[in-house]
Structure formats: C-alpha cells, structure tokens
Simulated scan of single mutants.
Amino acid sequence: MEWMVAITGLPTDILILVLLAIAGAFAGFVDSIVGGGGLISVPAMLLTNVPPSVALGSNKLSSIFGAGSAAITFLRNGMVDFNLVRKLLPFTFIGSILGTIAVVSMPPLYVKPLIIVLLVAVTLFVVFKKDWGEVNRTSQVLGKALYICMGFAFGIGVYDGFIGPGTGTFLIMGFIFTGFDFLHASANAKILNFTSNLASLLVFLFLGHVNILYGLAAGAGQILGAYVGSHLAIAKGSSLVRGVFLTVTTVMLFKLVIDYISTL
C-alpha cells in the first residue's frame, strides 16, 4: 500500500476508497452476468485490514447496490419470471438471516468440500452438454417443482449468509435445472441475490459488523459494473452468460480448493 501512496500521491484513506470502488466495479460486472463477484469484492475488503466479519458485512452493503442495479435492468427488460421469483423471496430472505447468524459463531470450513464437488460436477456438465441453458424450456413452475425451488431458495439463502461468494452462480444453476436458459436464469437469480444480500446486511448492521464508508465506496463501483454487465448480458444473450459462467466457476473452484488445502 505504501508504494501506491507514493506513486499516486493520495492519502491512504482516499486510496483505499478508490481501490474499493475499482474492485467493486469489476465485482459488479461479473456478478451481474453470472454471479461470483464476491470472489473479487470480499478479498478486496479483507485487504483493508478490517476484521473478517466486518469485511463480510461491508461487502454485503456494497453488494446490494450491484445486485439491485442489475435486478432493475433485468426487470425493465422483461427478463425476470416474477410470478415464480416472488414466491421464492421469503425463503431466501429467512435463509440468509439464519446463515448470517451462524457465520459469526461457526467457521464455513466444513461445507467447502461439498461445494467443491458440486462445482466440479456442474462445470463438467456445462462443458460437455453444449445445449444446456441455451433454450428457455420452462413456462410455469408448479406443484412438486415449485416446492423444490422453495427448498433450493432457502438453502442458497443460508449459503449466502454463511459464506457468500458464488451465491449468484449457484442460483443460476438452480434456475437452469428448472428449465430456464442462462440469460433468464441470471435475471431471476439477481432478484433473489439482492434479497439475500439485504437480509444478511440487516443482521450485520444489527451486530455492528459493517464499515459504512468502505461499503459505500465499493457499492459505487458495483452500480457502474452491474449496469454495464447486465446490459451486455441482455445484448449478447445466453452464449455470453454461458462463457462467463464457465470462467467464473473454474476460478471459484481453484480458489476454494486452495483455501481448503491451506486450512488442513
């Protein structure tokens, strides 16, 4: 950090805010397309040397701006199946609250092996099944399928509150399995991701684990990145989302494996 201060001539506090905004822009861009922006924003928050719980809480503050910006864009362009999503929102909201409460007292180490296996399976599936997520094959999600979606929405909400990075990616997986194409799955995922971020943020605020200034700085970048990313996704369609999906899941997989090995 000292060398950057020397080069830019900016005070340390200002430089941190600028770097968080830049990291937020990249995170918002990636997250708006396929999720996984937390892989960028959370490490950036940790580099400020705030406690891990404050880094997570501050990241949630920034994430609601990115997810909210992308969600508004997708909604305005009619990409969201709100009839389905509105039924899932309460489950994601409650799940995220429970996950956030758990994260302050329990390390997320124990669920990482399961996530690694899941990511490997889904990544290989997408690579070898070229047409998966290319065509929107769903009309209405009813009956047993709806109950499965509710359970999935709750589980992902818990995951977002408990760990966080990759939530949007897992939500997209779930919607694609339901029959949506990559683009519509990404649009639906943003609404639920915004909901889980908001629920988690409320808990972190209540516990005093949010640096408001850092969160707002990264959030400003997230708005810009999410605006560009969501418009690009709509313009380029499912093929772009599929390519970014494979890239992000691969990076996420390597990071989780390295993190898990380093803790053994």
Rank of each mutant, 00 (worst) to 15 (best):
L47V: 00
A67I: 04
G37Y: 07
A102V: 13
Y147T: 04
Y110T: 04
P52H: 03
N59C: 09
Y147F: 10
G38N: 08
A27N: 10
V122E: 05
L75K: 12
S32E: 11
L124W: 09
V127M: 12
F26A: 15
T100A: 10
G35P: 09
T73Q: 06
V85M: 06
L114D: 00
L39C: 08
K87T: 06
G35A: 09
I101A: 07
S96G: 11
G161M: 12
I64D: 01
I163H: 01
S58D: 13
S53Q: 13
V42G: 03
P113A: 08
Y159F: 15
R137S: 14
N136S: 02
A44H: 04
M45E: 10
A71R: 00
T123Q: 03
N136P: 00
S53D: 11
F74E: 06
T100Y: 05
S69N: 06
N77H: 15
A71L: 03
F93C: 05
L124N: 09
S62G: 15
G37H: 05
V103M: 12
D160N: 13
A102E: 05
I94N: 02
W132D: 02
G155M: 14
L46Y: 07
G133E: 05
K87R: 14
I33T: 11
F74C: 07
L61S: 11
G151R: 09
E134H: 10
V30I: 15
K129A: 01
D131W: 06
D131N: 14
G24F: 04
L98Y: 03
V34R: 04
A153L: 08
I64H: 03
I94D: 04
V85T: 07
A102C: 13
P90F: 05
I64N: 05
L84C: 08
I33V: 14
L119P: 03
D31I: 04
L84S: 09
F65G: 01
L98V: 11
A27Q: 08
L118S: 13
G66R: 03
L84M: 10
I163E: 08
G37N: 09
A27C: 06
L119W: 03
N77C: 05
S32G: 13
